[in-house]
Design a protein around this nucleic acid. Structure first.
Length: 549
RNA sequence: GGUCUGUUGGUGAAGCGGUUAACACGGUACCCUCUCAAGGUAUUAUACACGGGUUCAAAUCCCGUACAGACUACCA
């Protein structure tokens, strides 16, 4: 019995060889500096912030060099698969205009010459390499049961030894070929393990694009390569896929750093060229008890992309935020080039923070606020309407009914060098403009300011509307009249003067303006009162005043 | 237990052997002002985890400690 016999028994149907695969998936015909990256998620539900960040960067560096960004689906774990997993991923990506050049582009559509791009469809390919490794004594079948492995583990824990299947603990590595052959013939369950030649006392130096040189002990653990169901584990699939798909740069989270020695070892054993690696810091959050921890898909709603959709944060703002945490000099770049797009910014690995970034919702919302402030009123209208259609139908109907009027509302103090920044997200807009719509102007709760005497309020309002109000007035005329109104009631029309001699007056012009403001909006806080009067027009102003007279 | 990574003001974060240790968000005050927002000005924050070394010089290099995180699965 030879290794070849054993390999044939284990893989009777393999037709390709490692050489024919090299021909099928040849080196990409790209210039030297062009980068091939990928995003390789598992279809386990929505995309997590941290993953989105790495997808975002992967696409960015591919685009920066006119290279290729592709999408591969890593679905080797059946237990964690969810329904429509691929569609969900595609949707989230599309929302952020992260469109793959190659790979999986629809639930059941793949493009490109390096496929299939779904791991569950690549079994024949993995088998070729597994067979090769068996033949060449680089891997072996292991028949250990769960209990046996458990025993090894507890044994090691007791002796305070390193945990894992290695050297003297790796009993199956010494099984004879005949024995293994016989047991497989007998239909015994087995996995295929790496036959590691690594020495834990020796060091290897690996290079990471964001962390620089890292020194590791060599890997001496006989990791599982192929599970008992015949499906490879991540490590094996990663090495084969990224080689065959000719990925040049691997971007992934820091959680993979520890397995890098294994991956490098695998690349070398298979004579693959080693790609460049960049391990990104994890996206963290502060826990209730004040400690930092990885942003969790399960526990933290803000880790879901949909959270921002629901909140009405513009996607562009999320992208700007991601870029600022991806490259620390992006903010400075934006400062210097306020109108530049993200595409014009060059990503630089040297500017990636190695420590985990704390996810900062305030910062994101601030970016959102700034972004919205730079939009045109029509754009604000469109975005808000889209948001409302999904989350506030009633408001959506009102927006549609009063389209032009709404745009004028959104336009208040917008067309100026420094526009107002009071809309944080699209979901907060309604609470800031509701009073401009008569439909919402019911069940009112007036919050008066300094002047709260009903009689005085009535007198001020009726005097204003009868004696001073004129729809045609320009802003200066309007304000002059407000001043006159103030004087008439014994309030100072000049605030500076009032501040000098407060005792000579009942109050100042702002108190009078506030009465009008509250009568129209119920609140002392609003945008430019002149614009509000302009938009409401005479009849509606009178109606609102009459409610109080 | 083992391996690796990280630690700069309230937060994010520059800095890579010589700096008054940037900048942004936030906080505070004042100015502007019909309110608010914005804007302007100023201000704030005891900021380089700790202890050793190397050096004329260390936030920056080395070692140790502490803390945090990741990995240590037939999950990715």
């Amino acid at each position: 019995m030879t290794r070849k016999d054993l390999a044939n028994l284990m893989f009777p149907n393999v037709v390709d060889t490692i050489y024919t695969l090299e021909e099928k998936y040849p080196k990409r015909n790209l210039e030297e500096n062009k980068v091939v990256t990928r995003y390789a998620p598992s279809p386990t539900g929505f995309i997590h912030m941290g993953n989105l960040l790495s997808a975002f960067i992967a696409r960015k560096i591919a685009k920066d060099t006119n290279g290729i960004f592709y999408l591969r689906i890593e679905d080797t774990d059946n237990k964690r698969k969810v329904d429509n997993g691929i569609t969900k991923i595609l949707q989230d990506l599309a929302n952020f205009s992260i469109i793959p050049d190659e790979g999986v582009v629809e639930e059941d559509k793949q493009i490109g010459n390096y496929g299939p791009y779904i791991q569950s469809q690549r079994k024949q390919i993995y088998d070729v390499y597994a067979k090769y490794m068996i033949e060449n004594d680089l891997a072996y079948p292991c028949f250990c049961t769960e209990e046996q492995l458990e025993n090894i583990r507890t044994n090691q824990e007791q002796k305070k030894e390193r945990i894992g299947y290695y050297s003297k603990y790796a009993t199956c590595r010494n099984l004879s070929i005949d024995e293994a052959y016989k047991r497989i013939k007998n239909n015994e369950k087995y996995v295929i393990r790496l036959k590691s030649k690594g020495d834990f006392d020796k060091r290897i130096i690996v290079n990471d694009l964001v962390r620089g040189k890292i020194i590791f002990p060599e890997n001496d653990i006989d990791h599982v390569l192929i599970k008992s169901d015949g499906i490879p584990v991540y490590h094996f699939a990663h090495v084969i896929d990224d080689h065959l798909m000719r990925t040049t740069h691997i971007l992934r989270g820091e959680e993979w750093l520890s397995s890098l020695p294994l991956h490098i070892q695998l690349f070398s054993m298979l004579n693959f060229e080693i790609p460049k690696y960049a391990h990104l810091g994890l996206v963290m959050k502060i826990d209730e008890n004040g400690t930092r921890r990885k942003l969790s898909k399960r526990k933290d709603p803000e880790s879901a992309i949909s959270f921002y959709h629901e909140k009405g944060v513009p996607i562009e703002a999320v992208k700007l935020y991601l870029m600022t945490i991806a490259n620390s000099n992006f903010e400075a770049f934006l400062d210097a080039n306020p109108n530049a797009s993200i595409d014009e910014f060059k990503f630089d690995f040297k500017k990636v923070s190695a420590s985990g970034t704390l996810f900062d919702l305030d910062k994101l919302l601030n970016i959102s606020r700034n972004y919205i402030s730079r939009l045109k009123a029509e754009e604000v209208y469109d975005y808000t309407l889209n948001w409302a259609k999904e989350y506030d139908i009633e408001f959506a109907k009102i927006l549609e009914k009063y389209k032009n009027y709404s745009i004028e509302i959104f336009n208040i103090e917008r067309n100026q060098k420094k526009p107002r920044k009071d809309y944080e997200t699209f979901s907060t807009i309604k609470s800031q403009v509701w009073y401009m719509y008569d439909e919402y102007f019911t069940n009112l709760d007036y919050k008066w300011g300094k002047i709260n005497d009903k009689k005085e309020i009535s007198e001020i309002l009726s005097t204003y509307i009868n004696k001073y109000y004129n729809e045609e007035d320009d802003k200066d005329t309007w304000f002059d009249k407000i001043k006159q109104l103030a004087e008439e009631f014994g309030y100072c029309s000049n605030i500076k003067e009032y501040k000098l001699n407060p005792d000579n007056y009942k109050g100042n012009v702002s108190d009078i303006a506030t009465v009008i403001r509250v009568a129209l909006t119920t609140t002392t806080i609003s945008p430019d009162l002149y614009m509000i009067l302009k938009l409401l027009k005479e009849n509606r102003i009178k109606n609102r005043f009459n409610k109080l007279l």
